[in-house]
């Protein structure tokens, strides 16, 4: 009976977690960005590559990614990659943009990334976020 109750509670927990994940994935509507996507892939020997793409509503004076926070799969923070150090994370006068950056992690470690996109025009800027799935380095 205890096993049954545990199974029910586990199911309940997983289900509620799934719903909450969907709910917390949401941010605000964006005045400049239409859609975005990102992924994290293994390059071998502990190296990981974060690839992103973003599409704006219009031609932006600056478009791309402002920063990428890397976390271990248990949620512990690892590092942040900034566009100031990786110039290819941003472009100018573009409606769509896609690029990637690499990071040397630890082989066998599971990582995910939170990508902060960036779009700006003369009238303002926005920086929505996107969370990737987990990848084993």
């Amino acid at each position: 009976m205890k096993k049954t109750i545990s199974a029910i509670l586990a199911f309940l927990f997983v289900f509620m977690f799934s719903i909450n994940t969907v709910a917390f994935a949401a941010t605000m509507a964006d005045p400049y960005i239409s859609s975005m996507s990102g992924t994290i892939t293994s390059e071998g020997n502990g190296k990981i590559k974060i690839t992103f793409s973003v599409r704006a509503k219009n031609t932006m004076s600056t478009l791309g990614v402002d920063s990428i926070e890397i976390y271990k799969s248990d949620g512990s923070y690892v590092t942040t990659l900034y566009s100031s150090s990786y110039p290819n994370m941003l472009t100018t006068n573009a409606r769509s943009y896609s690029s990637n950056v690499s990071y040397n992690g630890i082989s066998g470690q599971n990582y995910y990334a939170i990508i902060t996109f960036y779009a700006s025009t003369g009238g303002g800027s926005s920086s929505p976020t996107y969370t990737t799935s987990v990848c084993t380095a």
Partner: peptide, 12 residues
């Protein structure tokens, strides 16, 4: 045009 078929799994 962006071909990210090897990473994102998409051609945009």
């Amino acid at each position: 045009f962006f071909d990210n078929s090897d990473t994102l799994g998409v051609i945009s």
